[in-house]
Design a protein around this nucleic acid. Structure first.
Lengths: 270, 270
DNA sequence: ATTATTGTTCAGCATTACTGAACGCTATTC
DNA sequence: GAATAGCGTTCAGTAATGCTGAACAATAAT
């Protein structure tokens, strides 16, 4: 193992074996559902023999499972069970969903509720229109902040140091041809967001999806999260922006009283 | 620590520190969102000093978080992030949801898709009617099998040994006055389920919710999961049972081809 | 046939996770 | 206000245990 990584796992008062296990779980992403022992070994730069013990433990307890007729691992059901507990522990959802449903009824579009964690957008809830064939659960999804409406809405209300730190940490990856990948252009766009009070996503994360988003702040002014209205370019025409912004403003204001329940506020990020 | 528990955590080829950390996470349930160090210490019968290191590690990595202005812990956001990955890794959902939507359109009721894990019902997806104000995400929820339609549908298709083992492990807890808590009555009810091909939940898990459920089986006959139609006693009248059963039968048959993707089948339960 | 890669075993060593007692601290009790 | 009980926290010593590298069989690729 590399020394830098070794150092990260072995701080004082820490259980390095536990940290290793969690790092193993984090190797799995929405783009990488299955991993073999050798793949994890390369990803984490750990000896295979070390990993095997950890993998067996994780598998035994249901946090990993072997793919049928194969040697690859997948995240296990226990993760989802725990997540259900975590989800029910966020009482904010019960306040936010009615507000989101009102937005949905008024606009007919998709409504997202996000927070931010470690410099990334964190999706908490969504309310879809009645027309189906859309992904159901978004809870737990994360995305870079620079390329989504919610992300930019939150960034625009942070101080420059924080924004610069986030950009430096994650860069400005391009997800579509419209993604803002230039530092100065992004700062310009954020200034516009600040000026008009809301952010616009012009198919910057997914082609065919435009959105308008507004930040939710605590009474003290900290950025807790954001609400967004997303739809196709056909329905998200310029004329709807003003009325949608007004709807969002009302919704965000009403959620301010629950802002302290957002992960971004509850977590004391190191 | 008690010897029995100690033994469970320290099998050969296992990382006991990792197992401890996961056992800590599992202390949190939908009925117990917040736990203090002392509470966990009592729950797991572990010294506080031992726990503190683990808790710090879990917190540092985002798997636990401290409640604001308090010393209690809560499950962290990383759990939900991982769960999102786990959820996207189950390709079955994409096949099941259209089938569930058809059921929803035909009945107007709530449709649940479950599997079973370690003798408990495991909820995977749900499709709600357009009328709102219902809990959104059920993914990861677990319930005892004897008191739900889906659970009984699955139990009725298992062999007696398995059923007896599950009853012995979890007992027959009462969730409502209608819950079947008598062993013989339950076996009688399961026989009825077997005879007519579907299970009925007569407000046995939640008062005001009746449901009809049918098991999903693999081509080899193993019980993979179940589909259910849930509604109020007002709409779930005896006359709808036959047509609903026919709808369920078609849906369950069509999902047989994907039955190998259910957790109950993918997991080789120890 | 050969090479490369896979998952796996094992024993010994050094690391490290565990522990119990003791510490301040707050809340409760008398 | 004194006393108790409970809390989270620190710390150093030690026993335990997680880690490791080399070697294994088995498969996949060349």
């Amino acid at each position: 193992m590399q020394d830098a990584q070794k150092l990260m796992l072995s701080a004082k008062g820490h259980v390095s074996a536990t940290a290793k296990a969690l790092k193993i779980l984090e190797c799995f992403t929405p783009f990488q559902h299955e991993l073999t022992l050798a793949q994890i070994s390369r990803l984490l730069d750990m000896p295979k023999s070390t990993l095997l013990n950890q993998l067996r433990t994780l598998e035994e307890l249901g946090y990993l499972m072997k793919v049928r007729d194969g040697s690859a691992y997948r995240l296990g059901y226990k993760i989802m069970e725990l997540s259900y507990c975590a989800h029910t522990a966020i009482p904010m959802s019960q306040y936010a969903i009615p507000v989101m449903e009102d937005l949905q009824d008024a606009t007919g579009e998709i409504i997202y509720l996000t927070s931010h964690i470690n410099g990334r957008s964190f999706y908490m809830e969504c309310v879809y229109p009645n027309s189906r064939s859309v992904p159901y659960s978004v809870s737990g999804k994360t995305l870079p902040m620079h390329c989504t409406g919610c992300g930019k809405a939150m960034l625009s209300q942070m101080n420059t140091q924080q924004v610069e730190a986030i950009i430096q940490q994650y860069g400005l990856a391009s997800l579509t041809p419209n993604t803002i990948t230039d530092h100065d252009l992004l700062m310009e766009d954020l200034a516009k967001c600040r000026a008009r009070g809301y952010a616009l996503d012009n198919e910057e994360e997914t082609l065919g999806v435009k959105c308008i988003a507004m930040a939710i702040r605590t009474p003290r002014g900290e950025v807790a999260g954001a609400l967004s209205i997303s739809g196709s370019p056909i329905s998200m025409v310029p004329e709807v922006l003003d009325p949608y912004a007004a709807l969002l403003a009302r919704a965000c204001t009403s959620l301010t009283q629950y802002a302290h329940l957002f992960p971004a506020i509850q977590l004391q990020t190191p």
